[in-house]
Simulated assay, not measured.
Amino acid sequence: MDYWAPKIAKMFRTAFLLLSSWFIINCSEKASDTMALPYYNAPDFTPVFIQNEAEVKEKIPHTIRDFSFINQDSALISQATIEGKIHVANFIFTSCISICPVMTKNMKLVSDSLKNDGSVAFLSYSVTPWIDTPSVLTAFKVKNNIRNPHWHFLTGNRSTIYALARQSYFAEEDIGFSKDSSEFLHTEHFILVDKTKRIRGVYNGTLSLEMQQLIEDIKTLKAE
């Protein structure tokens, strides 16, 4: 009995230490998984971290302004359509043969993972709206096998789209922010916007690796 007592005690201590280590690691992982996303309040995309939600309205006044365009089905899509939803925006044109096909493919990766989730919308604004009519956008959507009903390809007034891209979404960061509506808009950025119309993430739409981060960040926003 005296021989086994120290060994049993040692086993219990080892088990306790292992259990404690697992608990600490597990809690740390959960904490990192639920870490709040930053806010972006300026075109230079300097992240602003706020723990107290009551401070958001005071410190993050910038929001995506209201908009109204038509989609590939000639249906009116406005801020009211996505009110209270998370959305991801990008800016493309159907005749683009450089970065747009890659961006569309990568956006589809994200869209397909959430195609049955009505709480997340995808908005692809055309930067050549005089070419990308609803019928052209419909053909583009079919060509790319896009079936998510919450992904809208939008067309409308050029200057209105460009102003929204540069002044609301900061689509070209601080460089694009200084341009006017006469200068062609071309950006690889995907912009993540939360339910309160505030920017919470920016991603390089040509990099498939960043799409997994975007998916995870959408999950984080949904949990807020």
Rank of each mutant, 00 (worst) to 15 (best):
I175C: 05
E55Q: 14
N144E: 06
T128L: 15
V56Q: 06
E83F: 05
I97S: 12
F140W: 13
T104G: 01
D132C: 04
K105T: 13
A36D: 10
L209C: 00
T206I: 12
L17C: 14
T46D: 02
V48Y: 01
I199P: 03
L192M: 07
I175H: 12
L192S: 04
Y40Q: 09
K10Q: 11
H150T: 06
A165F: 03
E188W: 02
F184P: 09
F91Q: 07
S182V: 10
N106D: 07
P61Q: 11
W4S: 10
L17H: 09
S113P: 07
K108L: 15
Y125R: 04
I24L: 14
E172C: 04
A121G: 00
T206N: 08
E188F: 10
E183R: 14
D33A: 13
P134E: 04
S159W: 02
K179M: 09
F91G: 03
T94G: 05
K57R: 12
L37V: 12
H152V: 01
L221C: 12
A121P: 00
L214K: 08
K179R: 12
I215M: 07
H62P: 11
R147M: 11
H150N: 13
T196L: 02
T128K: 15
L18Y: 14
F67T: 02
R198W: 02
T196K: 09
L17Y: 14
E210A: 07
H150L: 04
A171V: 08
G84T: 02
I199E: 00
I215F: 03
V193S: 04
L109Y: 15
Q213W: 00
L123Q: 04
R166C: 06
S181T: 14
M107I: 10
N106P: 11
P43R: 03
L137K: 00
Y39C: 12
G201D: 02
L214T: 10
M1A: 13
S74F: 04
V56M: 09
P38C: 09
V110D: 03
K222I: 11
R200D: 06
A223G: 13
F93G: 01
R13K: 14
E224I: 15
W4H: 10
F153Q: 00
I99H: 06
T206P: 09
F12E: 07
I191V: 15
A139L: 12
H189Y: 10
Q79F: 12
D180H: 03
L214M: 12
A121N: 06
S126W: 03
I218Q: 02
N145E: 15
N144A: 08
I191T: 09
M11S: 09
V102A: 13
D180A: 03
Y125G: 02
Y203C: 00
S182Q: 09
N204T: 11
I86G: 01
L76T: 09
F16K: 14
C96P: 08
K59L: 15
K59C: 12
D33C: 03
L76R: 04
I25M: 06
T46G: 01
S135P: 00
S124A: 13
S74I: 08
F140C: 02
P101F: 00
L109W: 12
T34M: 07
